[in-house]
Design a protein around this nucleic acid. Structure first.
Lengths: 152, 152
DNA sequence: TAGACTCAGTTCGTGTTACGAACTAAAAGT
DNA sequence: ACTTTTAGTTCGTAACACGAACTGAGTCTA
């Protein structure tokens, strides 16, 4: 596998496109006084509260890394911990009201910027790209680090 | 702009695909005892030596951040600084021999892994994806953080 | 050509990120 | 009851990223 000329094209395309997305993400985060990781945390929590375990799995972080990330987000008033009524060891992490506002603004700004990356693509090309990336994301079970749509 | 259903699909697709690529990159780096940033540095330098300024622009880093990154890479014997004969302020950063070996192995491993992300796509779909991503990368002037092909 | 300015890179201090190992307390299994 | 698992935190270490301040070298200009 990986021998035709187009293969390398896919790889380099994915890596460089991902570099662009990272840069966009960083720029958005900076605009809202967040770090990239905090932005990611907020975007994940927009969907629903998470326990520390699930959150670590979703973000691909070790639990010890997560404690600090959540601590700092708590200190900034973006997030809070709530006890799990069914398990006194466990904790739910959820957005505060301020956190939700910031998350939604950050999410919107990031969407806008990422969208602009694909601005020069024709509508049918955008559809094709969305479909192809959707396949990759599905096949590789990418966690829900970024919502597909906002359900009101 | 950004109002049709497919638009959000593009955005979420790009963000999540980028998340997958980041994870793959991190895994490859870990395999070679590198950090992600060091891996990125090596991949950039595979193409040619860079001055600190260009390097910062390419990697999207502040010059003060770069000094440390290069310092640590030097300490690990992956990279070295060479004086610029035409400008005594300037420095060229280039791979050591060991650095080149690690870079090539890391690059190959990362290519293989990223390739696997798209493994389930049919060859024509891979071509389409490569083309579409290529357009985005070109339109947004993504820096050469990852070579397209190795020129021997 | 002296003085001002710009440019390349480093240093320093601060906050953040990430990890593994060791730990605590609660839950589950036997 | 006793052991094991599980959820999360703490601690120590290394890396990362930034801005502000700095040094020394090149450039511009009056």
């Amino acid at each position: 596998m990986g021998k035709s000329g187009a293969d390398l094209g896919v790889v380099a395309g994915l890596v460089r496109a991902s570099f662009l997305v990272n840069a966009v993400y960083a720029e958005s985060a900076r605009q809202y006084g967040l770090t990239v990781q905090q932005g990611q945390l907020l975007c994940v929590l927009m969907g629903r509260p998470y326990g520390m375990g699930d959150l670590g799995a979703t973000l691909g972080l070790e639990k010890s890394s997560l404690t600090g990330l959540v601590d700092r987000a708590v200190r900034r008033g973006l997030v809070r911990r709530a006890p799990d009524p069914d398990d006194r060891r466990a904790v739910h992490v959820l957005l505060t009201e301020e956190g939700r506002e910031v998350a939604e603004d950050f999410y919107a700004a990031t969407c806008r910027r990422v969208d602009e990356l694909a601005a020069r693509l024709s509508p049918p090309d955008r559809d094709r790209l969305a479909t192809l990336l959707g396949t990759i994301v599905r096949e590789n079970e990418a966690p829900t680090v970024f919502l597909d749509t906002l359900q009101p």
